[in-house]
Simulated scan of single mutants.
Amino acid sequence: MTSVGVVETRYLDLPGPLPLDCGRELSRVRVAYETYGTMSPDRDNVILVCHALSGDAHAAGIAAQPPEEGTREGYAKGLGWWDGMIGPGKAFDTDRYLVVSTNLLGGCRGTTGPSSTDPATGEPYGPDFPVITVADMVRCERAFLDELGIDRLAAVAGGSLGGMQALEWATRYPDQVDAIVVIASTHALQPQGVAWNAIAREAIMRDPDWQGGRYYGTGRAPDAGMGVARMVGHITYLSAPGLAEKFGRRLQDGLNYTITEPEFAVESYLRHQAAAFVRRFDANTYLYLSRALTYFELGPLDQVKARTLLISFSSDWLYPPAASQEIADTLTRLGKSVENHVIDAPYGHDCFLLEEARQTPIVRRFLQEGTE
Rank of each mutant, 00 (worst) to 15 (best):
Y11A: 02
D13F: 12
D13H: 14
L18Y: 03
L20E: 11
C22H: 02
G23I: 07
E25A: 12
E25K: 13
L26D: 00
V29Y: 03
V31Q: 03
T35D: 03
T35G: 02
T38H: 13
S40E: 02
P41L: 00
D44T: 12
N45M: 05
I47C: 06
I47Y: 11
L48M: 15
L48T: 09
C50Y: 03
H51W: 06
A52Q: 13
L53F: 06
D56N: 15
D56C: 10
A59H: 00
A59K: 01
G61C: 09
I62A: 13
I62D: 15
A63S: 15
A63Y: 06
A63C: 12
A64R: 14
A64F: 10
Q65H: 14
Q65I: 13
Q65S: 12
P67Y: 05
P67R: 06
E68M: 12
E69Y: 12
G70F: 05
G70H: 04
Y75G: 01
Y75D: 12
A76H: 14
K77M: 00
D83Y: 06
G84Q: 08
P88N: 01
G89I: 14
G89L: 15
G89D: 10
K90E: 11
A91K: 08
D93I: 11
D95Y: 07
D95A: 07
R96C: 01
Y97V: 04
L98W: 03
L98Y: 03
V99I: 15
V99M: 07
T102Y: 03
L104F: 12
G106A: 11
G106T: 13
G107K: 07
G107F: 09
G110N: 04
G110A: 05
T112Y: 01
T112G: 00
G113V: 04
